[in-house]
């Protein structure tokens, strides 16, 4: 009884020690990852702009927070996000229901994008551009309608992209044909879309893929490709993110054409 308690507490200390060691290692990596930004900021501020660094205390405190944050994030990624993404991919493959897999793919793409703060910010700015360009009337109602219309368009496009990407993994289609086809679509749409929307459309591809979505979607793709026979996780597993950044460009340009 006593010995088992003792063994339990030793085990716990051991696990805790391992955890701390792991996180400390991550902190070292994070420090290295963040050093370039601080060097750039310091060099430009001190040597090129030749100005003192304001609130150096705040800056250092913020730096410490960023380093700790990145280390914790990477640790959580390895023990939480990656495993769940992969285990769900394996289970969907074993279940063998295409319908549910595709529903999941769409929901993941749509659900993670619609609430994305970066997208909300871009949509609001885009509404301003549309007002300045005289595409919509200058009122709060019109602005809100335009911005949320844009947000849903982008979220739909990401859901659609992940869905198509999953079908591609299952079928084993080469990624480049779809991507090049998508590029051709973007180029053709650029000709017809109103000038005001083009910059926003191009940028919207970049803002959709958030820090939590990327690891999950990557793990889903790689997990799916490795549990399907005849698929290579390297060739077939990656590519979902690329779809998720390409399709919003097309959808947003079409949205711009419809709204004007």
């Amino acid at each position: 009884m006593v010995s088992s308690k003792l063994a339990g507490s030793i085990l716990r200390t051991f696990v805790l020690q391992k955890l701390i060691k792991h996180i400390l290692g991550n902190i070292k990596d994070s420090l290295r990852d963040l050093l370039p930004i601080f060097v750039v900021i310091a060099v430009f501020q001190l040597l090129i702009l030749q100005q003192p660094i304001p609130n150096i205390g705040d800056l250092l405190f913020g730096f410490v927070m960023v380093v700790i944050g990145l280390a914790l994030f990477i640790y959580g990624l390895e023990i939480g996000l990656f495993p769940i993404g992969e285990s769900m991919a394996h289970e969907f493959a074993r279940k063998g229901s295409l319908f549910w897999l595709l529903t999941f793919a769409f929901a993941l793409g749509f659900g993670t994008t619609v609430a994305e703060p970066a997208l909300i910010a871009v949509a609001n700015e885009a509404a301003q551009v549309a007002i300045n360009g005289g595409m919509i009337e200058n009122s709060d109602a019109a602005r809100l309608e335009y911005a949320s219309g844009l947000r849903f368009t982008v979220a739909l496009s990401v859901g659609f992209a992940i869905l198509v990407g999953v079908i591609r993994i299952i079928k084993g289609w080469p990624v480049q044909y779809l991507i090049i086809g998508g590029y051709a679509g973007v180029v053709v749409l650029t000709w017809f879309a109103p000038a005001e929307i083009i910059g926003i459309a191009y940028d919207s591809g970049g803002v959709t893929t958030s820090t939590i979505t990327v690891p999950l979607v990557t793990a889903l793709g790689v997990g799916l490709a490795s549990s399907l026979k005849g698929r290579n996780p390297m060739i077939d597993g990656f590519g979902l993110i690329a779809f998720a950044s390409l399709s919003p460009m097309m959808f947003v340009m079409v949205y711009g054409m419809i709204v004007t």
Binding site: G62, M65, G69, G76, L77, I79, P83
Partner: peptide
């Protein structure tokens, strides 16, 4: 997995807050 999610969440909060501040 739950522990992982908590770490991801906390990590992001620290990360974003630090960026925002510094």
């Amino acid at each position: 997995v739950i522990t992982g999610f908590i770490f991801v969440l906390l990590g992001l909060v620290f990360f974003l807050q630090g960026l925002e501040q510094a």
